[in-house]
Design a protein around this nucleic acid. Structure first.
Lengths: 141, 141
DNA sequence: ATGCCTGCAAAGCTTTTGCAGATGC
DNA sequence: GCATCTGCAAAAGCTTTGCAGGCAT
């Protein structure tokens, strides 16, 4: 089914693209940086260049397959775009990402922006936190 | 009075530091990148190196005089830290920054994080928007 | 006088780009 | 077969660091 999504995006179905999409599907618990994807591909015996990873991720972003986020720490991270908007809780210890959406917050945002005389385009809400009691369920990185 | 703040931070009172603090005070409507500060200093006949700007801003950040934000676009931007926490509305056209704080949103955030079993450390909420009807009051950059 | 600061240049990181060869369609 | 894609290497931004001289105290 990966093929179809890639094809729909107007891109040729190549091994790097299939692999990268696959990886993103497998890691929904933690958003991956380009470097992460690159290392995972190397571990998978797949021989893909870092430049290609960046190119593919950027293309996927343009195609709406993927969303790019700028969490703290310089590196961009990527997640599969499954349509619905949501915000993020990021664990500062393990990088685990939890998604949420809260209508109360969404509504307040719209109200605030309107009050100030702006037209809201998009927003980024990231809650930096620690997994409960230090025993992170996902403690890599 | 700049002198006092710098001294309180345990830093020597030097021209670059005074100038940079001064600039940050003058530009509260738009957060400045290190590059912005550098260019403004050059325009002010002050001859300060870019590396020094970065160093001073980082020192100010450690001292709690300044806050660093990662808005979209790779570059970090800096604002004077006047104590209270607040979130930001950033105009995508002109870079104008409006601050706000909303207790409803703050409270919801705490609730959500607790529900998910995390301990909130901090958060970043940025609303990207357009100034009303395209006639940005501040349309530099 | 001493130790902290500064400017310059060089290096570090993440990300992008140019190009020749490879591959999908 | 042709256009698109890939890997490599080089380059491009932003930021940090090493070092020798300069300045605040």
């Amino acid at each position: 089914m990966d093929d179809l999504e890639i094809r729909k995006a107007g891109l040729k179905v190549t091994l790097p693209r299939i692999k990268i999409l696959e990886l993103l599907r497998e890691h929904t618990d933690r958003h991956l940086s380009a470097e992460d994807v690159y290392k995972l591909l190397i571990g998978c015996e797949s021989d893909v260049g870092l430049a290609t990873v960046y190119r593919v991720l950027t293309q996927f972003e343009s195609a709406g397959l993927v969303k790019r986020h700028n969490f703290e720490g310089g590196q961009s991270v990527f997640e599969l775009d499954r349509g619905g908007h949501h915000d993020h809780i990021v664990c500062l210890d393990c990088g685990h990402v939890e998604e949420f959406i809260d209508e109360v917050i969404e509504k307040r945002q719209r109200t605030i922006v309107k009050e100030k005389g702006f037209a809201l385009e998009k927003h980024a809400l990231i809650l930096y936190a620690h997994c409960s009691r230090g025993n992170c369920p996902n403690r890599n990185r």
